[in-house]
Structure formats: structure tokens, C-alpha cells
Amino acid sequence: MASDELFTSGHRGCAGCGMAAAVRMVLQEAGPNTIVANATGCLEVMTTAYPETAWKIPWIHAAFENAAAVASGIDVALKKLGKREGINILAFGGDGGTYDIGFQALSGMLERGHNITYVVFDNEAYMNTGIQRCSSTPFAASTTTSPAGKFSIGKKEKKKPIASIVAAHDIAYTATATIANYRDLKKKVRKALDAEGPSFIQIFSPCPTGWRYPSELTVELSRMAVETGIFVLWELEGSDMNKIKVTYWPKERKPVEEYLKMQRRFAHLFKPEKKTDILNKIQEEVDEKWKHLEELNEMAR
């Protein structure tokens, strides 16, 4: 690890934590003139047990649902004090603090037009409290509050399309990223930081503890989410979803099964017997999504 890392070793993150790798990459791009407002969650707990800290930049945590509001306060205060120039303000939240409990504060921040980059580290459930269902949890994933069972296939509802909802606020820049697509991620962080006004990046953050897979597969899972088309890498300036730019087109999309079977949160879809109907449903939805993206791409030409 380079000595100028701003997110340093010695934190208490699980082996293979996708979020830890993502945070490191984001800060590599943002640099030292950066202030972070962090929501409650794994990231805060694992990096700031007093009197230690993993952060070499000014960092603040107040509560679970308000990283966007705290960051807004920093933005206006620095402006008033004449210290805003050249400073990046980032807000970090998990999917719980972003999709659910912190959604209102996020929407307020976007509407007010703060020059803040909000990053959601999306690991698709409330991991800090022990793998409970979130609106970010994908269809059919088993969590501790949407467990698979004799009468349950796991979460009944679809994943909430947070990035599209955020983009609908007509903000400067919205993007999705994964740690497997390192250069793509860094480029997007740069664009977000350079954008005039609010920007948002959703970083797909595999969680070995919550998804139940061997910790060395974190990068591979990120790659497979993209290669199967389950997670789309895209970016957009403004709010017109017809203008989204897919930043990576899988050459040949792999079957979703290959991604799902790597994780025990989907194990009930494969045994005791294979749930073909569920698997087909997931595949069809992904196919449908890509058909739409390809049409948009055709139109754009």
C-alpha cells in the first residue's frame, strides 16, 4: 500500500470487505483536500473506535440518516468562512443510510444543489446490524429478516433503483461503479468531484459476511455482477434517463445463475432442488433491462 493512502490499514473491516477497497479508491482520487461526512454503519464502526482512526482527512459522523444534511452544513459553513475553495466535500453512506432511513436527507441535499459528492457503498442489506433486508436487497436474496424458507423465496420485492431516482433530481452527475472496474470507478469519482453541483456514485460493494461467500472472491463477484448484466455500469449528466451512457458493455452476458450460485444468500435457489422459475424470472428481468439499454444505445447513434 502506498504511504500516501488517506484511508489507512489497521481498521476493523472484515477480510474481503468490498466497501473498504472502494473507500480507498475514492479517496485516492479525491486527495487530501477532502472532508467526509459519514453515516452510521459498518464504515464508521470499523474505522473510528476511539482513540483510533483510519482516516487521514477530516472526517465526521453524526447519525445514521443524515450524512447528506451534515455535509450540507459543512458546505455552507465553509462558504461563509471563506474556506470552501479547493475543498471536496463527500458524504458516505451505506445502502441503509441512503436508500431507506437517509433518503429524505439525501433528496434535500440534491434539491438544494450543494456541491457535494454523495457515495453509497451498496452491499444490499443492513450489514452492520446483521444482514437485515433493505430496499436495496435484490429479489430472492435471503436475509435475516427476509429468510428463505418453506414458504419464502427470500426477499419478495425488487431492488430499488436508487441511482435513477437520484438522477431524477436533475443533478450534475450520477454514476454507478464497482471495484473490479478500477479505472472506470476512478474516472467517475473524478467526474463527480469536478461536476458543478450535487453528484452521486453508487458503488456495488460485495460483503462476504452478508452474502456468504469466500472473502477472496470480492473482486470476482463485482466482475460477475457486471458480466452477467445484473449490475450496469453507467453515468448520466442531468435527469434524462434516455441519455444514460453505459460505460461498459459485456461482450457476451453470462447467465445470472453463475453470479447467484457463488453466494449462499441465494443458495435456496439451487437446493434442495433448483428453483428454475425464480432463476428464469431474474434472468428475464436482466434481459429486459439490457434490451432497453441496447435500444437507447441504438437511438443515440
Partner: peptide, 15 residues
């Protein structure tokens, strides 16, 4: 809730 949250961010910034 956000007003007091922003107050915290602003006050911690020295305002």
C-alpha cells in the same frame, strides 16, 4: 432533523 444535522456539520466546521 436535517436542520439540526446541518447545524452540527456547520458548527464542527467552525461556524
Amino acid at each position: 432533523h436535517s436542520a439540526m444535522s446541518a447545524a452540527i456539520g456547520a458548527s464542527a466546521s467552525g461556524a
